[in-house]
């Protein structure tokens, strides 16, 4: 019998994998998708990647191997090596954000399970249907879509949708790393630069910079809405923790494991200590992303742990 839901997260390198207790998770996405120079990136160190897959399989967890979001021509050979290594090592799926890479993967490994990542810009059911023809078995729709739109795509295409339920949501990707400007000033060379806590702020708005990538400053949090997600037919949930600490991965993962199991049993109860843990790890605050059709930094819910009046007004949230 298939498990009722899957909770997964992201790990960039072998050190993060070995230093993190990943027991709350059913599956792990391996590799940093934003930059080839990321410290110890599993997508560049294939022996580490094989070892990581073996560790996860040994723990009874699924191993998914990610690929870069926006590769240029000279990145393609490495991606082909990564995918070949993933297949050889028994990875359960690869995640693809780039449609050219999807074509390459499908032609080389037509039976390989492919998960479509959030940067692939799936906005419509016809877009999802195209990717299904190329071997997609699961899709993370673009983060801008509402639950209503995601549900329509799921119904039309018949593929499971993966939802980011907690963590910092990707907001964009660049072709260049602007943090390199600070190597000398700060005396911090690449690849240590983007592992620092770097936030961009403007008034009450914040984004986290990870070099080429920009993430939401607030943590997306759907803790209050898990039953709704399950009732809506969703079963694949991600805690985005690539740029977080081992403690974040473990403690947030435990909260969601417990909460999902509770939701599965029909419980609406939310434990106070869950909120304590989530608030402890949310440096800037909480939001719901775009799932409710308003601005990504708004929070909807009775607990409102991250909302304030100005946000509600700005996003048109009247509750």
């Amino acid at each position: 019998m298939a498990p009722a839901f899957e909770l997964n997260t992201t790990i960039s390198n072998l050190r993060d994998l070995t230093e993190s207790d990943l027991s709350p998770y059913d599956a792990i996405y391996l590799g940093n998708i934003t930059c080839r120079l990321y410290e110890g990136n599993l997508l560049e160190h294939l022996d580490d990647l094989r070892e990581a897959i073996a560790i996860l399989k040994g723990q009874g967890q699924k191993a998914y191997v990610s690929t870069y979001t926006t590769p240029r021509n000279n990145d393609l050979p490495q991606i082909q090596k990564v995918v070949a290594a993933a297949v050889e090592a028994g990875a359960d799926a690869v995640e693809v954000h780039n449609l050219g890479v999807l074509k390459i993967v499908h032609e080389a490994h037509p039976d390989l399970a492919v998960h479509i990542g959030g940067f692939a810009n799936v906005y419509t059911d016809v877009g999802a249907a195209v990717l299904k023809r190329y071997g997609a078995v699961r899709i993370t729709p673009n983060y801008e879509l509402s639950l209503e739109e995601i549900g329509e795509i799921q119904r039309e295409v018949g593929l499971p949708m993966e939802l980011l339920v907690h963590g910092k949501m990707p907001l964009g990707i660049s072709d260049d790393c602007w943090l390199l400007e600070y190597e000398q000033t700060w005396g911090v060379p690449c690849p240590a630069l983007c592992r620092q806590e770097l936030f961009l702020k403007q008034g009450d708005w914040a984004m986290k910079s990870i070099g080429k990538g920009v993430l939401s400053g607030k943590d997306v949090c759907l803790l209050e809405h898990l039953r709704r997600l399950m009732t809506g037919g969703h079963a694949c949930f991600r805690v985005e923790a690539a740029s977080e600490s081992p403690a974040y991965r473990l403690e947030i993962g435990r909260v969601y494991r417990e909460a999902l199991e509770a939701a599965l049993s029909g419980s609406d109860g939310l434990k106070g200590q869950w909120w304590d843990t989530i608030r402890h790890h949310a440096r800037i605050g909480l939001c719901n992303g775009f799932y409710f059709g308003t601005s990504g930094m708004a929070y909807h819910g009775v607990q409102s742990p991250g909302a304030d009046a100005a946000e509600a007004q700005r996003s048109g949230v009247g509750q």
């Binding site: 964009g172 990707i173 660049s174 601005s295």
Partner: peptide, 15 residues
């Protein structure tokens, strides 16, 4: 700053 077609920063802030 962000690649065309890969940016949803504005809608994160405000619709």
């Amino acid at each position: 700053f962000i690649l065309l077609g890969r940016c949803w920063m504005p809608s994160y802030y405000q619709m």
